[in-house]
């Protein structure tokens, strides 16, 4: 059985026929060729597949493409504007919030969710909010600094 789906990814609509068992992360990576979203654990633990589904964070390895039919998905490729990085991307760069970079797309989208729910998080709230995302390189210190930095930039930008 295949099912027609219409999924908007980073503002562009894609109409495809998919097997019901196709995971959203494989739809994004293999069907659309957007490989910014990573697969780490494939068991919903590590967060490297985190995307925004209708604006809120979701682990794309634990969602079927058919469940996202009609939805709007944002991946790391869709976060930056035409000529500028998103403040979270700038902050991860400036504060050295990454080393190998494998966790970074998921980390940034999970941070996006955190700042959506809490625009001014403390270091502890950042650690708590990123509980579902693992980084095997940085030791997290610089990730926390990067999210703090982005929160300050984003608040400065809007007030």
């Amino acid at each position: 059985m295949t099912i027609p789906v219409s999924i908007t990814v980073n503002g562009r609509r894609y109409d495809r026929e998919v097997e019901p068992r196709l995971l959203l992360v494989h739809f994004i990576r293999d069907v659309l060729g957007l490989t910014g979203t990573k697969v780490g654990c494939d068991t919903s633990q590590c967060g490297s597949c985190t995307i925004l589904l209708d604006g809120v964070s979701a682990k794309a390895c634990t969602c079927l493409a058919v469940q996202a039919d009609g939805a709007s998905v944002t991946t790391i490729e869709g976060l930056a504007g035409d000529s500028e990085l998103h403040p979270l991307q700038e902050s991860f760069w400036n504060k050295h919030g990454l080393q190998c970079g494998y966790c970074t797309p998921g980390m940034i989208l999970a941070s996006h969710e955190l700042l959506r729910c809490n625009a001014d998080p403390s270091a502890e709230e950042i650690r708590h909010g990123l509980e579902g995302n693992m980084c095997r390189c940085t030791g997290y210190q610089n990730i926390v600094r990067a999210v703090r930095d982005a929160a300050e930039t984003m608040q400065g930008g809007t007030s």
Binding site: A58, C117, E131
Partner: peptide, 9 residues
């Protein structure tokens, strides 16, 4: 429960 992304779904 779990983490924020799990709680969203």
């Amino acid at each position: 429960i779990g983490d924020p992304a799990v709680r969203n779904r």
